[in-house]
Every structure is written in C-alpha cells, then in structure tokens.
Design a protein around this nucleic acid. Sequence first.
DNA 1: TGCAACCGAATGAACGTTCGATTGATGAAT
DNA 2: ATTCATCAATCGAACGTTCATTCGGTTGCA
Lengths: 200, 200
Amino acid sequence: MNVRLMNFNEKIAAVFAATLKLIHTNGFHGTPMSKIAQESDVAIGTIYHYFPSKDDLIFALFKHCRSLLNDYIFDGIKEDFDYKASFFHVWRNFVKFYLENETVFSFFDQFFSSPYHEKNKAEIQEPIGGQNKVLDFLQEGIDQKILKQVDVHLLVASYIGVALATVHSIKFKDLKFTEKNMEELMEIIWDGAVNRNKNN
Amino acid sequence: MNVRLMNFNEKIAAVFAATLKLIHTNGFHGTPMSKIAQESDVAIGTIYHYFPSKDDLIFALFKHCRSLLNDYIFDGIKEDFDYKASFFHVWRNFVKFYLENETVFSFFDQFFSSPYHEKNKAEIQEPIGGQNKVLDFLQEGIDQKILKQVDVHLLVASYIGVALATVHSIKFKDLKFTEKNMEELMEIIWDGAVNRNKNN
DNA sequence: TGCAACCGAATGAACGTTCGATTGATGAAT
DNA sequence: ATTCATCAATCGAACGTTCATTCGGTTGCA
C-alpha cells in the first residue's frame, strides 16, 4: 500500500465507496475486482496500481473505516459530562455510527467473522473498532469505582456486544431506533455495569 | 433437498463435518465444492445428488446446526429452577455450546453476516439460533414482572449480544472462560435486565 | 526526459455445476 | 429360483464461466 493513500486520492475514495457498497449488497463473495472497477469508474489496472492485491485493498479499507469510527464515537463529549453521561454518549454514538453507515457495519461484520480477521490479527490489535479507546474509558470507570470491580474485558463484551446486537436487531427489523428504546437499552447496560455497592 | 436427510446418511454427515471444518479455517471463500468433496471423501457428484447447489448445502447445514443449538441450550433445566436460575442456565449453555462447537460458531458468524442470511430471511424466521425460544423465555420474565417492563427485543439484544461478544472475546484470547468470569458476566446481564422496582 | 497515474484486453487458474457411467438393492415376472 | 427392470446412490472427468492478476501501452505533469 501507498503513503499517498493518506491524502486521499479521489480514485481511491471512489474505489472504497464502491467496495463498501458492493460488499454490503453482494457480500464478500460476489464482489469481484471487475465489478469494483465498474462501479467506481476506475480501471482495474489503476486499482492494482494502488493495491498490490485484493486482500490489500480490503485491509486498507478496513483501516480506513476503523479510523472513521474511532473519530466518530468519542466526538462531542463535553467537559462537563459526568461519567454516566459519557458512558451513554459513546454508546449512543457507536450505535448511531453503524446505523448511519450501514455499508461500514456490513463490511466490519463480514470482515471480523472472516479469516481475514485472523490472518491480520497481529496487525489489527484492536479487534472491534475503537475498542482500545473504549477499553481505556471503561477501565477508568472501574478505577473510579463507578463500574463493577471486574476484568475490564467483561464490561467491554457487554458494552460492545449489546451495541452490535442492537444494530443487528434494528437492521433486521426486530427493533425500532426510537429515543425510548435507546434510553431503555442504555439503562440496561448501565444497571448491569454499575458498581451496586456505591453509586447509581 | 431430501427427506432422507433427516435420518442422516453417513455421507451427508461427512459432508456437513467437512464443510464446517473448511469454513472455519478457510472462510466462506476458500471452501470450494472440490475441497469439500476431498475432505469428506464423498464424490462431488454425490454431493450434488443430495443438494441441488452449493447454496442449498449451506442452507441445509445451517438448519442442521440451528437445531443442534436449540436442543442444547434448553437442555438440563430442572423443574425446581426459579427464573433467575434458568436465566443463568440458558445463558451459560449458549456460551458453552459455541465454545464446544467452534466450527459451528464460525459458521453461524459468517452465515449471519453474509447475504445468505438476507436472502433466506423469510425461511429462517429466528435470526440467531434458538432466538425464538429465548424470546419466549424472556417474555415470560417480563410478564411475571421479574424483568424490566420493556420491549422484549431489547432484552434479547442484551442477552444474546453479550453472549456472542463473550464467545468472540474468549476466542480471540482477550478473555478466559473461568467460572468467576462467567458468573460476573451473568451478574452484569441480570442486573441490567432485572426489574429494579421489585425483585432481586 | 522521466516517472507516476491511468487504462483494459489478455491470461491462466479455480470455481460451480453437469452428465454419462457404474454399482447394488428391491421386487415383479417368469 | 432365476431373471430382469428399475432406480437411488455413487463416482469423477469435463465444461463453461468467472475470477484475480499481469502487462504493454498512453497520458500528462515536473
């Protein structure tokens, strides 16, 4: 891959967009390079000019999307938010991001459950988007005795797990994305995560 | 597909086993019919005798695995279990099943995040294994005022979402499957789900 | 002049599926 | 008891398609 990727060539942006769209609707199978070229109006040769192989393209796209997500979920936290407010804010952003970027959600979903994930695990580090920052944030809550005094990974699994399941459920029409539902969900997670010997 | 499938031909069992294994290690890509034939010692022609297409094979395998999971998770519930005990029991079985059947977990994971899922949604009904029974079970808890008085899908998302995230986390080595961890996780989910105006 | 960006026809490998042939079990007809 | 017809089960070589990738070429900026 190429350093120029960072200042974001229009061609590359088109390729990324086309790849996301195609994977969303046709899956990882069913999105050959030829269709990516067609959909993005970039010649196959050009794509291979930037990405040595299809795998490299997928992996670069993954890193790009991950950074989008990371930027998004911690955005808009005000100084005067207490821990609970931030806890809600980040979780809601997480769900919102995936709902607003359905193709990214599909892509991540497929990426993480495919052997791509395993193969590149070493290079990925943070298994689910922004999880390291989330992990630090939850650890902070543990240290301040706001959250349960348990292994932080248990809380991460709850926090992220419920968010992902929620998005799935909304996507497959079992659930409506209403203010009421989101608030009730956040109550469920908060009540589960919070240290009951102290706060509320 | 064939009715004889139900009394489980040895050949078909071999094909199913080989397919699960291959999909687990090589993903949905990377498991061509030729390799399934090779790994299972069943001729390609024979596989096509039972399944009209690769899609049909995958879908039949899905239904088979789903019924395995359904049988498993509600097994072993004693008459004298109260609701909380059953709540824990089923959740623990859910996690245990996936940990004991890693290939099935991989397969479901990939199946649900692929367009297979969308295409066959009408025929699937219960999106994640055994979810309908889980849904009924949780609805019962709501009706009895034991659980929070919310849309049951919110509780399903929490219950299943945390279980899936837990298995993922264990699989990718962030988490150990210890008694202590499982109990703390169940406390987290229970505290989140329970109706705080009443019980504990 | 050199080099990065760009193009798409051509290539060879890999894939899903087909099909004609073989086997063996069942049972009706002789 | 023997023959024969039928048909499901089995097999794998062969087919046509589709895929990822290559490569020789053009363009245009520095």
